[in-house]
């Protein structure tokens, strides 16, 4: 069998419509993961009695196990749990009504949350303590100081790591095929299964992912430049 160059192009065109699915999964998991991560990071930094330890356990567990196991656990475990609860309390809710992509959203958000929490925590820790003290000394409350002084600086420090997390989730979204969501990877499989030209189809899929990744990197560079405007000059 020869490598069929024209089929790479055909496959490329057929895979293109699956890009939005991949991007939606990535976007949802990154945004939800950011919120989860922020809460977990704050709980750990402020050593909130029970929540702090729970957040630590959550981060350790998620970071110590593959993303695939999270997806499988949610996919098989959540319906059992929900149906049991629903039967107990008579909610009249059936787990079968959850769309397949919903499992991907939930599980990837949980995964992203743990990784994001580490990124956010290191970002917050990188801000000089003097900044917080200065904010207090001009009479800001803690939420004000966090929102106006700490978060913006922490965000600009974490941009490179956040971009790595986004790229990680983009690449991780390929796992969605295990719960029958048709993303770029699944589409490549479907396209190839008609004529068994798997190699060509996966070259097309790889090129698309490569392009998306480079795009994210470029965007990050622009955002980083903009975010660090306040920080130019001086000794750094």
């Amino acid at each position: 069998m020869k490598i069929d160059l024209t089929f790479i192009w055909t496959a490329f065109l057929q895979i293109l419509p699956a890009i939005p699915t991949t991007l939606v999964i990535t976007l949802v998991s990154v945004l939800a993961g950011f919120v989860i991560g922020l809460l977990a990071a704050l709980a750990r930094i402020y050593k909130v009695p029970v929540l702090g330890q729970a957040a630590s356990a959550y981060v350790t567990f998620i970071r110590g196990t593959p993303m695939l196991t999270h997806l499988l656990l949610i996919y098989f475990g959540l319906p059992v749990l929900l149906d049991a609860l629903s039967a107990q309390f008579g909610w009249g809710f059936k787990s079968a009504s959850i769309p397949m992509i919903g499992f991907a959203f939930i599980s990837f958000s949980i995964t992203a949350g743990a990784y994001m929490s580490e990124v956010i925590r290191s970002g917050l820790l990188a801000v000089d303590r003097g900044q917080l003290e200065a904010a207090y000394s001009v009479g800001m409350t803690t939420p004000q100081a966090l929102r106006r002084i700490i978060f913006p600086q922490a965000l600009s420090v974490s941009i490179p790591n956040l971009s790595n997390s986004v790229i990680g989730m983009l690449h991780g979204s390929t796992l969605a095929f295990t719960v029958s969501v048709v993303d770029i990877n699944a589409k490549a499989q479907i396209v190839a299964s008609t004529n068994w030209k798997f190699f060509e189809a996966y070259i097309a899929a790889a090129l698309i992912f490569w392009g998306l990744t480079l795009l994210i990197e470029r965007l990050t560079a622009v955002i980083e430049k903009r975010m660090n405007l306040y920080n130019r000059g001086g000794i750094v």
Binding site: H171, F199, Y202
Partner: peptide
């Protein structure tokens, strides 16, 4: 480096297995 860091490992697996 750019290729292997820029594409998902799952895609790479299939790519090498078939390619």
């Amino acid at each position: 480096v750019s290729f292997f860091r820029g594409t998902p490992i799952l895609i790479q697996l299939f790519l090498f297995y078939y390619g």
